[in-house]
């Protein structure tokens, strides 16, 4: 246990909520709120899973994911993407970029926690 999760999100209240939910499950949660430097953060931190927001300052979630998938190290890294833009086109874009799971905000706490748990187990 003691899995390492990186949360890339720029809304403080949402960071707070997700951090609360995942920490309670026993995972170590790090946060990062800048899109432009998110890929470097993943490289240095090497988390077991990334929770990625779609709209971020600097660089959007799709671009970050594409860049990660181009790196063989993160080819199989579980990525859960969250978005507040309720457009179906975004889901297609994300799936094409190689997302592991795609969820629309507002989410149910249970769903997020279950999704993270499933993804981590799947990756093992």
């Amino acid at each position: 246990m003691g899995k390492h999760v990186l949360l890339v999100e720029d809304e403080i209240n949402i960071i707070e909520a997700i951090q609360f939910l995942l920490s309670r499950e026993g995972w170590q949660v790090d946060t990062h709120s800048d899109g432009a430097t998110a890929v470097e953060k993943v490289r240095s931190m090497r988390p077991d899973l990334v929770v990625l927001d779609y709209m971020l300052p600097g660089k959007n979630g799709i671009d970050i994911l594409t860049e990660l998938r181009a790196d063989p190290d993160f080819h199989r890294l579980p990525v859960l993407m969250l978005t507040a833009r309720g457009q179906s086109r975004d889901r297609d874009l994300a799936e094409r970029a190689g997302v592991s799971r795609f969820m629309t905000k507002p989410f149910s706490n249970t769903e997020v926690v279950t999704a993270v748990r499933d993804l981590v187990q799947l990756a093992q």
């Binding site: 949402i14 909520a17 507040a84 833009r85 457009q87 905000k105």
Partner: peptide, 27 residues
């Protein structure tokens, strides 16, 4: 499309916090 995407984002973001924290308080 861009405008609707924006509005959606602006409305869903606070609603996410509200839903998440109200669930935390409830559960």
């Amino acid at each position: 499309d861009a405008f609707l995407g924006q509005i959606s984002h602006e409305l869903r973001t606070p609603m996410t916090s509200i839903r998440s924290f109200s669930e935390i308080l409830r559960d």
